[in-house]
Design a protein around this nucleic acid. Structure first.
Length: 883
RNA sequence: AGGCACGUAGCUCAGUGGCUAGAGCGCCGCCUUGACACGGCGGAGGUCGGCGGUUCGAGCCCGCCCGUGCCUACCA
């Protein structure tokens, strides 16, 4: 050896405490400036790792759930980056949809009128109190979208600053918003492709309808809510007979919309009625009585009325039995004005029917219900002539009612014209694709499969909203001005994105808009999922840049929450299937829920949302990331401040231990002492385990193993054991000292790399002190992930047990000091170590380090076969006086 | 009602059929040590939800039950 000394850190140059907030700001700026997280488009697909980042709802509130799942993704990404992968990690903003619409309507006091044309240069100020009292200003869809853009830009800033503070290693050059031109183009191209392939169709049919938003809803947006209701027992008559029967209904207001009556074919009570006609009370409408397997003899009275439309089964019966259509509930949720006795509204007593219905028309569903019940109660003479048609007072029940997930009133089935994507004929293919994808945890695939198997409707993709991607379609109008829905004009690929309200279809002129013989624009927009189901293709520039698409699609991983498996994951898989018959990504990583300390799911409606910034300030970004990183994928996790605290403690410990290790200096010598070689062997096992865990998408396990090693194998043990040797000034001890300093530094280097994906700030901070220069890797986040190979230059230890023996012997000495209630720094004048001969043999090559760490002056060894293998007992210790 | 997951120390969680079931926090006691008192050392703390089965051996596998969460179904 040349006598050259290792470079070292002047501990005086390092602040006493780690200023995390300053470090976060400094490193965020530095990473941006250096392009540390930039994607390199020149590298091939095999070296690239593509993340299909969830675009957060820009107008949504920030809460801890965001931190949780996005941190999981970032940890995985940072690991892959250190493995040498070229990371494609974009960020999108999901800004179209209802939440933004509502905010913009309030903020500017405007309403969107899709029939209007774009006003160039329209600039609005936030509405004043005076303006709010006036009628809202009507603006075109394009202007409305501009306003939405303005508002969401602010929300995006808030998210971006949170993501930056949290240390997400996103490439901010790859940013998109689901309403921007590029996303609109991709969504409309998607529609074109589906139309050309025959997967998209338009039809006028009963559809799930929200009466407040006056908008169609897809199956995936429906949720059940337990609501109070009541069974109303209502007597019906039988045509040409003095018989009657009683049905039980929870929706008496639909009585005037009754178009049939059904019971189970085997039900003895009603068998003789099949084929006859029932007569409804109050309205005296004769309706067919037919048998149906779907009627449950156990429910209610076993016989029930079929209305247009009370529920999904009514829609089915209506189709299968060819029943009449009496659509009373309108798009606004109020009963329409109709006349009984007129075409399609047969009644045996039209005058009475119209008198009664006149009291209902124009009423909301709820108000009509009250009114009908009163009529049923008051009406004279039931069919059988014994009392009013309401045979008993309503019996309250609790039952599930379908709601739009963002809605306030129950959904209705209303016949409207909508666009659909055929999915029912794709179930098998969808299930196959689901099985091709690797789900983490694996059981999440079952959720997807369950949903897919339970699919009851095709995907309704048109929405009667404004802030969304317009459906790029016009309809030709015939000589009477009626649209031909069977021959839609779909905009050509090269004019996209297009708003058909402003653009004119080929072969027409603007003057022909809405004129007989002219054309009419489709005023609707796509379901927001229609766009967000394209996030992998949005990033890869599908259908626009084949070369980029080939490099970035399919993606490697889709991180997401379990609540949107049936929407985002499902629709994304469907789109990739329908467009290119491929899977959109190889892996899905599903994060669990955040639960509040009472184990309730955190949600805005429960009011138990925790905002992340105060936690970041109190526990540092690394501390918060530690909390997220310690939770496995798919496992629901309670918010527990203890865990944040532990994370912060780990950050502090890393800071202090690094300061110590890097300030040691010695002549350069190879790692040759037994304890040092034994430590490196332990380190090597850790590297193998952590790598294996990461490869299995188990970041939490990798963190646990690394953290546990750091405390119990490094700072509490190895570091204490070599401390004295690392500072030994005796020239004869130079090789041993050099070995110690080299091993300490290697140990720190490796552990910093293993912890870097979890704790990017503190690891980068201490890395920058010395290791950046020594290793030639300016950022620990671009340094290679350690592997067994990188530790192969250190000779394996002579014995497998020497490290464990050293740790156990030191623990025994520590315990002797604790028992004697003296400090760990106290010198031991003499002691006897008793252990099995084998344990003593294991201890022999590392004994000097143990005695130095225990500050033992005189010692004796006592072989004893009676001892437990691997343990040491300290006997007759005598302690020096306190210095 | 069906499905999936979970149930381990006071709390939060590890645990690959194989020694006496682990960690951290919290609790108790002790220690100013030279990287760190934002620290260290030691200790107490368990019927692994219950019952049965398979096995030489079960926290782990199988069956039933109880509890929790979620998904799906349930609107007459």
């Amino acid at each position: 050896m040349s006598g050259e000394r290792s470079r070292s850190l002047d501990p005086e140059s390092i602040p006493r405490h780690f200023d995390a907030e300053a470090a976060e700001e400094r490193w965020d700026a530095r990473w941006q400036q250096d392009g540390t997280y930039h994607y390199d488009p020149s590298r091939p697909r095999e070296e690239t790792f593509v993340v299909d980042t969830p675009p957060p709802t820009a107008s949504g509130s920030l809460h801890l759930g965001h931190i949780f799942s996005y941190t999981h993704t970032d940890i995985l990404v940072r690991y892959q980056r250190m493995r040498g992968r070229n990371i494609f990690y974009p960020m999108g903003w999901d800004d179209n949809g209802l939440p933004t619409e509502r905010r913009v309507q309030n903020y500017y006091h405007v309403r969107c009128d899709p029939g209007r044309h774009y006003e160039e240069g329209l600039r609005l100020e936030p509405a004043s109190a005076k303006q709010r009292k006036e009628r809202p200003r009507q603006v075109s869809r394009a202007n409305f979208i501009e306003l939405c853009d303005l508002v969401t830009k602010e929300d995006e800033k808030a998210f971006k600053s949170l993501w930056t503070r949290l240390g997400l290693s996103v490439d901010w050059r790859q940013e998109y918003a689901t309403i921007d031109d590029h996303c609109r183009r991709v969504a409309q191209l998607s529609f074109r492709d589906l139309w050309e392939k025959g997967h998209a169709y338009t039809v006028h049919a009963p559809t799930l309808w929200d009466v407040d938003f006056q908008c169609a809803i897809a199956q995936a947006e429906v949720e059940d809510r337990e609501k109070g209701g009541a069974y109303h027992d209502v007597e019906f008559g039988v045509e040409g007979s003095d018989r009657g029967f009683v049905i039980s209904t929870t929706r008496p207001e639909l009585l005037p919309a009754c178009v049939g009556v059904t019971a189970h074919p085997d039900d003895e009570r009603y068998r003789d009625l099949f084929g006859k006609r029932a007569v409804t009370p109050l309205f005296h409408v004769p309706v067919p009585i037919f048998p149906s397997e779907k009627a449950d003899p156990e429910k209610g009275t076993g016989i029930l009325m079929v209305c247009t439309f009370g529920d999904a089964t009514d829609v089915q019966w209506w189709r299968e039995e060819g029943l009449a259509l009496r659509q009373l509930v309108g798009r606004d949720g109020r009963l329409a004005a109709v006349r009984f006795g007129a075409d399609g509204y047969e009644s045996l007593k039209p005058d009475e029917a119209n008198r009664r219905y006149g009291e209902l028309a124009g009423k909301s569903v709820a108000a009509a219900r009250t009114a009908v019940v009163e009529q049923l109660r008051q009406a004279e003479g039931s069919a059988t002539g014994n009392g009013p048609p309401l045979r008993a007072e309503p019996r309250p029940i609790q039952h599930a009612v379908k709601f739009y997930e963002k809605g306030d009133r129950p959904l209705e089935f209303v016949p409207t014209r909508q666009w659909f994507v055929r999915l029912l004929d794709q179930k098998e293919a969808l299930l196959r694709k689901g099985r091709e994808i690797e789900w983490h945890p694996a059981h999440m695939e079952k959720r997807y499969a369950d949903w897919t198997e339970g699919l009851a409707f095709d995907w309704g993709i048109s929405r009667q909203r404004y802030f969304g991607v317009p459906i790029p379609v016009w309809y030709p109008l015939d000589a009477d001005g009626r649209p031909d829905f069977d021959a839609p004009i779909v905009a050509a690929a090269d004019v996209l994105p297009v708003d058909p309200v402003d653009a004119v279809p080929p072969g027409y002129e603007e003057a022909q808009r809405d004129q007989p013989g002219g054309f009419r624009a489709d005023p609707d927009v796509f379901d927001t999922w229609f766009t967000s189901s394209m996030t992998p293709q949005i990033a890869s520039h599908w259908a626009l840049d084949p070369e980029r698409h080939a490099t970035l699609f399919p993606a490697d991983v889709r991180p997401q929450g379990q609540d949107i498996i049936r929407t985002w994951a499902f629709y994304t898989i469907a789109k990739a299937l329908l467009h290119e018959d491929v899977i959109p990504w190889k892996h899905v990583a599903v994060s669990g829920w955040i639960l509040d300390p009472d184990r309730k799911k955190m949600s805005k409606s429960k009011g138990n949302v925790i905002t992340p910034m105060p936690l970041l300030e109190q526990y540092t970004a690394d501390g918060v990331r530690y909390w997220a990183g310690s939770a496995r994928l798919g496992v629901d996790t309670a918010i527990d401040e203890k865990v944040f605290k532990v994370g912060k403690r780990l950050v502090t410990k890393i800071f202090n231990a690094s300061k110590f290790v890097l300030s040691q200096t010695a002549e350069r010598h190879p790692i040759a002492s037994e304890l040092d070689r034994a430590f490196v062997a332990e380190l090597r096992r850790l590297v193998e385990q952590a790598t294996k865990s990461f490869e299995a998408f188990d970041h939490a396990h990798a963190l646990m193993e690394t953290e546990s090693f750091f405390w119990s194998r490094f700072t509490d043990t190895y570091l204490e054991l070599v401390k004295a040797r690392a500072r030994d000034d005796d020239p004869a001890a130079a090789p041993d000292r050099g070995s110690a300093v080299a091993a300490l530094r290697l140990g720190l280097d490796v552990q910093l790399r293993l912890l870097a994906p979890f704790l990017p700030y503190v690891t980068e901070e201490v890395w920058s002190w010395l290791l950046a220069e020594e290793t030639g890797h300016a950022s620990v986040h671009r340094a290679p992930w350690p592997d067994a190979e990188s530790l192969a230059h250190v000779e394996p230890p002579a014995g497998d047990e020497s490290f464990a023996a050293a740790v156990a012997a030191l623990a025994a000495i520590n315990k002797a000091k604790a028992d004697a209630e003296v400090g760990m720094g106290r010198e031991v004048e003499s002691l006897t170590l008793r252990a099995t001969p084998r344990s003593l043999a294991n201890l022999e090559p590392v004994l000097a380090d143990v005695l130095a760490a225990g500050r033992c002056l005189e010692h004796a060894l006592e072989p004893d076969d009676g001892c437990e293998e691997g343990t040491f007992a300290v006997e007759n210790p005598t302690f020096a006086e306190k210095r």
